[in-house]
Design a protein around this nucleic acid. Structure first.
Lengths: 222, 222
DNA sequence: GACGATTTGGACTTGACGGTCCAGTTACGC
DNA sequence: GCGTAACTGGACCGTCAAGTCCAAATCGTC
């Protein structure tokens, strides 16, 4: 059988090689997409041979599924600590700024998960399910903050944290896609600001007017 | 020289063949993406030979650019008459319903333009530019309606129709992507409702409360 | 130190795929 | 009606790409 099953533990050396392969594949697929990324490209980037690829992965599809998992971890991780504490308007705004900054640092190439979903969702049921789960995790994180706000009474009882979270994530994905296509972060900013205004609208006390948004804070983060 | 340049007019027969090729390519690329759609697939679907492909198109990239143009026309056309008259809340809601319905009819496979943009924007500058122009046309249409509202005084003078339109289109694209990935139109509905609420928020008279949205109108359109 | 499991190297196979080229058929213009 | 341009057919080529397979090297365990 080729491609180790997950029941067999790897040695440290094997685990390191496997991780290097997945990371190399994730980077290449982010820039060019799954179909335009060959296994030879991945081998070259990871510094491994064909046997190693097939030692750790049954086939290219199996590798791609691991890339989805890694990109999900990366996406969730990159948005911390913001994503774990979206329980106020200032917190939502910090998160917004972090996303805008992250996309800029990534050279406005869009969302790794969004790109994977767009490319794979119609053709690979397994990939689609895993990506749906990834988006589910992401919107669940957003929802937890909103639920905390509602529990605290700062979000109206009539507001549905789940639905708000899904709409907010939609704005994120759409903003990232338009930003990627137009090569400017402005659509992402506008979509995120709309989403945050939308949440603000469901708060129990009148939120500050969007145009009176505080000036950008000086930042100490790199 | 292979692939006719646009200065040479085609005969009716040639134009029909060319259109058939582009349409077949558009349908296949919509379902599977550019890279997973081979020229042999397109030939089979269009009922043409390899020489015909290269008679009308210099190469696959040239065909793909024509697909972008066709999908743009299709997308704009499919949203009419709504897209040309988004100058009131009821009109925006009708447009929203049309988009939700269109995505359902398309079996929740997402936005053709969004999928093309996601796949091609990082690797093909020509495709990216053309797709950016397509999104620009789309948001311009939305913007025209909003500008009419502002000219009429129903949208606040402080509202920026351009920015609102870009944010709205972001919601559309993100909603379509999440819908495609989760195989349910709900994310699209939520994203669109958020976008329309966002516009409503900038109206000069208090808009009706979102939860008090009128029940769906009985429809005579097929 | 030996044995065996794990990791690694890379040649090779097979089929797909974009594109080229030669030639036949159709129909358009004069 | 004829000549020719446009359209069409399909064999063929070179390269790419996923995947297979044999074998060597490394290292972990006893």
């Amino acid at each position: 059988m080729s491609g180790l099953d997950s029941s067999r533990p790897l040695t440290a050396r094997g685990a390191a090689t496997r991780a290097r392969i997945v990371e190399a594949a994730a980077d290449l697929i982010y820039g060019h997409g799954v179909e335009r990324t060959s296994l030879d490209d991945v081998m070259a980037a990871a510094g491994v041979s064909k046997s190693q690829l097939y030692h750790y992965f049954a086939d290219k599809d199996a590798l791609v599924l691991e890339v989805i998992t890694l990109q999900t971890e990366r996406a969730m991780g990159a948005q911390q600590p913001h994503l774990g504490a979206l329980d106020s308007l200032p917190a939502l705004r910090s998160w917004r700024d972090a996303i805008v900054r992250l996309n800029k640092v990534a050279r406005i190439r869009g969302c790794p998960l969004g790109s994977l979903a767009s490319e794979l969702a119609n053709d690979s049921e397994e990939a689609r399910k895993r990506l749906a789960a990834s988006f589910g995790m992401w919107s669940d994180s957003i929802e937890r903050g909103l639920a905390a706000m509602r529990a605290r009474g700062t979000l109206a009882p009539s507001a549905d944290p789940h639905e708000l979270a899904v709409a907010v994530l939609g704005a994120v994905q759409g903003g990232l896609l338009l930003a990627k296509t137009t090569r400017t972060n402005r659509p992402l900013e506008l979509a995120l600001d709309m989403a945050i205004d939308h949440v603000a609208r469901h708060m129990t006390s009148p939120p500050e007017h969007p145009q009176q948004r505080p000036p950008p804070r000086s930042r100490k983060d790199r």
